[in-house]
Write a protein that binds this DNA or RNA. Structure first.
Length: 478
RNA sequence: CCGGAUGUGGCUCAGUUUGGUAGAGCGCUUGCUUUGGGAGCAAGAUGCCGCAGGUUCAAAUCCUGUCAUCCGGACCA
């Protein structure tokens, strides 16, 4: 059948993956470009996804005792510069305010690229006793980083995120927090976003500027490039020493607390697009989809169809689902295509013939499967199907990740595999920066992480051949 | 930041070579007919030709600058 241009068309992902991605961002009405390079407007549909992510994740944080705060957006230069590594890491991408009205400022002010400094400065002034520890803070905000190359969700000059910052009495406690939050992210990715992850630790080269250890959840996109989904850092007492954050301990001596930070961003929406999307558009995980079920009355001009569809919608709303009904006078085909492009996980169709038979038809977005259900079983059937959709999406993504994870013994082998298949290349690594650089130079791959699930076997470093037990993943990253 | 491409109505684009009053299709609005996978007919509305300078009697078109977007690379918690 001749496809009209009624619903915006998107480029096939096999033809041009980058263009496909951009098309979805724009045409599913997730984002619009603002007038300054690298700044985007999150449109209602895109923002609704973010709101769902926020509310679920925020609930998880609160369950483990975290509280939300709001820090200022501007950081005095002198404050930012107290921790050397952090400054050096971020210097190239900090944006500055130099004027206040028509007056030149005495000291220029940085737009926050991250808020460690603000939290430390705050703790410096409010922390006194071990009895006040731990402080488990989080904030939802946007940050600014002056990126050179920008893409919606994946790399923008402003992005929205949450940044958790905590201080603890002991190193062990802080380390446990770092690990707990990493696992929290992994759970969120797998159980909410249906995106499988590899949990691991970053190398010295790839870790956060100023951290003692950086942990990550790494995901694999449909083009087999990898994307860091979220991150969790252990700082030791480095920052508290740099910013003179102290407390009086149980031993009545002045001590430095131990600190963590962890973050996840609107980039997760990019991960959703590239993990689940297809050539018909977006495919949203049911748990964060702004509209979980779209009810389409078929032949809606006929007696009783609209009223019946509205009843079905109301029943599903009553069951606590996010539901909409499309009673616009567009054709059936147009509506199907439209809601598929926007990634609605489940469609409910009901027309005169169904009404007569006392049934309706459910259609899954992820695989197009149609399921006929009795009208009276609607709620339970829909809930069941949404669950099935989530699981199928997760399994498909897991399959993609597993089937594109390769083992290599030498750099040549790794490079050849990467060229042929993309994906993760798993090797042994001695821990030497030179070997890591060699992988970058010869294969264009960066280290993704040293997985927490280490095999423990002894093998030879992929590059220098030195004996080691360390397993590491390599990949081309977003 | 480097290289390539692009910018004309809401969208996709023609028009730029060779300067001469702004075009098409789709969408949009109204009405009628249709309606189980991208509907049909009729009438109608919508343009600072990305922005700023320059050349010219005259600029969407030529020149300079600039902004933005896309693709690739470098860089990047």
């Amino acid at each position: 059948m001749a496809k009209d241009k009624k619903v915006e068309q998107i480029t096939d992902m096999e033809v041009d993956f980058a263009q496909w991605y951009t098309d979805i961002c724009r045409k599913a009405e997730l984002v619009e470009y603002a007038s300054v390079k690298g700044f985007t407007i999150l449109r209602p549909y895109g923002y609704a996804i973010w709101e769902n992510i926020q509310s679920i994740m925020d609930g998880m944080f609160k369950k483990t005792g975290h509280v939300n705060v709001a820090m200022p957006v501007l950081i005095p230069e002198s404050l930012l510069k107290k921790e050397g590594e952090l400054v050096n890491g971020f210097a190239p991408e900090v944006a500055w305010v130099t004027m206040g009205g028509s007056e030149q400022l005495e000291e220029r002010l940085a737009f926050r690229p991250t808020s460690e400094t603000m939290f430390c400065d705050h703790w410096h002034s409010v922390l006194h006793s071990w009895r006040e520890l731990p402080m488990l803070y989080n904030q939802w905000c946007s940050v600014i980083r002056w990126e050179k190359t920008t893409r919606p969700f994946l790399r923008s000059r402003e992005f929205w995120w949450q940044e958790g910052h905590t201080i603890h009495e002991t190193a062990e406690e802080a380390q446990a927090e770092t690990e707990q939050q990493l696992n929290c992210y992994a759970d969120f990715f797998e159980n909410i976003l249906a995106i499988p992850v590899v949990r691991g630790r970053k190398t010295e080269k790839e870790k956060f500027a100023g951290a003692e250890a950086t942990y990550t959840v790494e995901c694999m996109m449909k083009d087999r490039k990898s994307l860091q989904g979220a991150t969790s850092h252990y700082f030791g007492d480095k920052f508290s020493r740099a910013y003179d954050v102290t407390f009086t301990g149980r031993d009545n001596k002045l001590q430095y607390p131990f600190q963590t930070s962890w973050g996840s961003t609107t980039r997760m929406i990019g991960a959703i697009i590239m993990t689940h999307g297809d050539n018909n558009g977006l495919v949203l995980p049911p748990k964060i989809a702004p509209v979980q079920v779209i009810v389409l009355p078929v032949a809606q001009h006929k007696e009783g169809v609209l009223e019946n569809a509205a009843k079905l919608r109301d029943r599903l709303l009553e069951a606590g689902l996010r539901v909409k009904m499309d009673d616009s006078d567009n054709s059936m085909g147009w509506k199907c295509a439209q809601h598929e492009m926007k990634g609605v996980p489940l469609r409910v169709e009901c027309g005169p013939r169904d009404m007569e038979a006392g049934q309706c038809v459910l259609v899954r977005r992820n695989d197009g499967e149609k399921i006929t259900v009795k009208m009276e079983d609607l709620e339970s059937a829909v809930i069941e199907q949404l669950d099935i959709v989530h699981n199928m999406m997760f399994e498909a993504a897991k399959k993609n990740m597993d089937e594109n994870t390769y083992e290599a013994a030498t750099v040549e082998e790794a490079v050849a595999l990467q060229k042929a298949h993309g994906g993760f290349i798993k090797t042994k690594w001695c821990g030497d920066l030179a070997c890591e650089m060699a992988m970058k130079e010869q294969g264009g791959m960066s280290s993704r992480c040293m997985p927490l699930a280490q095999s423990g076997t002894v093998g030879k470093c992929v590059c220098c051949g030195k004996e080691t037990t360390t397993d590491i993943y390599w990949g081309v990253a977003y």
